[in-house]
Lab assay of single mutants.
Amino acid sequence: NQASVVANQLIPINTALALVMMRSEVVTPVGIPAEDIPRLVSMQVNRAVPLGTTLMPDMVKGYA
């Protein structure tokens, strides 16, 4: 199964993503693939992302 990017902490709106904020986990539904974690670093989220939430492409500015 494909691992997705999951929030490792609460990520406030407009926060630039850092490695420590993300982990990979096999979840349903599938979100952003875990292999894209390096690409996500320094991109901003466009909403608050609670701990344990799967990151979806529409949550990250400039990802989709």
Score class of each variant (00 low, 15 high):
N1Y: 15
N1S: 15
N1I: 14
N1L: 15
N1M: 15
N1R: 04
N1H: 11
Q2D: 15
Q2I: 12
Q2T: 11
A3W: 11
A3L: 12
A3H: 11
A3K: 09
A3S: 10
S4Y: 03
S4L: 02
S4R: 01
S4G: 04
V5W: 02
V5R: 00
V5C: 09
V5F: 01
V5G: 01
V5Y: 00
V6P: 01
V6N: 01
V6G: 01
V6A: 02
V6F: 00
A7F: 02
A7G: 01
A7H: 02
A7R: 01
N8A: 13
N8P: 01
N8Y: 03
N8H: 07
Q9P: 01
Q9K: 13
Q9H: 08
L10Q: 13
L10I: 09
L10Y: 14
L10S: 14
I11F: 01
I11L: 09
I11G: 00
I11M: 03
I11W: 02
I11N: 02
P12Y: 05
P12Q: 13
P12A: 10
P12T: 07
P12N: 08
I13K: 11
I13S: 14
I13P: 13
I13H: 12
N14A: 08
N14Q: 11
N14F: 13
N14T: 05
N14L: 07
T15I: 08
T15S: 08
T15A: 11
A16L: 13
A16Y: 13
A16Q: 12
A16R: 10
A16W: 11
A16P: 11
A16I: 15
A16F: 12
A16C: 15
L17V: 00
L17P: 03
L17S: 00
L17T: 00
L17K: 00
A18H: 11
A18C: 15
A18G: 15
A18S: 14
L19F: 11
L19P: 09
L19N: 06
L19Y: 11
L19D: 08
V20H: 14
V20R: 12
V20Q: 14
V20M: 14
V20K: 13
M21W: 04
M21D: 07
M21L: 05
M21N: 07
M22A: 02
M22I: 11
M22Y: 02
R23K: 10
R23T: 07
R23I: 09
R23W: 04
R23G: 10
S24M: 10
S24H: 13
S24T: 12
S24N: 06
S24G: 13
S24R: 09
S24E: 14
S24F: 06
E25A: 08
E25R: 05
E25W: 05
E25C: 06
E25G: 09
V26Q: 10
V26T: 10
V26K: 05
V26G: 04
V26R: 04
V26E: 15
V27R: 07
V27I: 06
V27Q: 04
V27P: 01
V27S: 04
T28M: 08
T28W: 05
T28Y: 14
T28N: 10
T28H: 10
P29W: 03
P29F: 03
P29L: 04
P29D: 05
P29C: 05
V30S: 13
V30I: 15
V30H: 12
V30C: 05
V30T: 10
G31M: 02
G31F: 02
G31Q: 02
G31R: 01
G31C: 03
G31E: 01
I32D: 00
I32C: 04
I32K: 01
I32E: 00
P33D: 06
P33H: 12
P33L: 09
P33C: 06
P33Q: 07
A34S: 14
A34E: 14
A34K: 07
A34I: 07
E35H: 09
E35F: 10
E35Y: 09
D36Q: 11
D36F: 09
D36Y: 12
D36K: 08
I37G: 05
I37N: 00
I37Q: 04
I37Y: 02
P38D: 08
P38S: 12
P38G: 13
P38E: 10
P38L: 13
R39N: 09
R39I: 09
R39H: 08
R39C: 15
L40W: 01
L40E: 00
L40S: 00
L40N: 00
L40C: 03
V41P: 01
V41L: 15
V41C: 06
V41A: 05
V41W: 00
S42A: 11
S42L: 09
S42Y: 11
S42G: 15
S42C: 10
S42V: 03
M43C: 07
M43Y: 09
M43A: 08
M43V: 05
M43H: 12
Q44G: 04
Q44N: 11
Q44W: 09
Q44V: 10
Q44P: 08
Q44S: 12
V45N: 01
N46Q: 14
N46H: 09
N46W: 05
N46T: 14
N46V: 11
N46G: 08
R47Y: 13
R47W: 06
R47Q: 14
R47K: 09
A48I: 13
A48G: 07
A48R: 11
A48N: 14
A48L: 11
A48T: 13
V49M: 05
V49Y: 01
V49E: 02
V49N: 02
V49F: 03
P50G: 12
P50I: 06
P50C: 12
P50M: 08
L51E: 15
L51K: 10
L51C: 08
L51N: 10
L51I: 14
G52N: 14
G52Y: 05
G52W: 04
G52H: 08
G52F: 04
T53V: 08
T53S: 14
T53G: 09
T53Q: 13
T53M: 12
T53D: 14
T54H: 02
T54S: 04
T54A: 06
T54M: 03
L55I: 14
L55Y: 00
L55N: 02
L55T: 01
L55G: 01
L55R: 00
M56I: 07
M56Q: 11
M56F: 09
M56P: 01
M56G: 04
P57W: 07
P57C: 08
P57R: 09
P57A: 12
D58P: 07
D58S: 08
D58A: 12
D58M: 10
D58C: 15
D58W: 12
D58K: 08
M59P: 02
M59A: 07
M59W: 07
V60M: 04
V60K: 02
V60G: 00
V60P: 01
V60I: 12
K61F: 11
K61V: 13
K61I: 14
K61Q: 11
G62Y: 14
G62C: 15
G62P: 04
G62S: 11
Y63A: 03
Y63L: 06
A64E: 11
A64V: 14
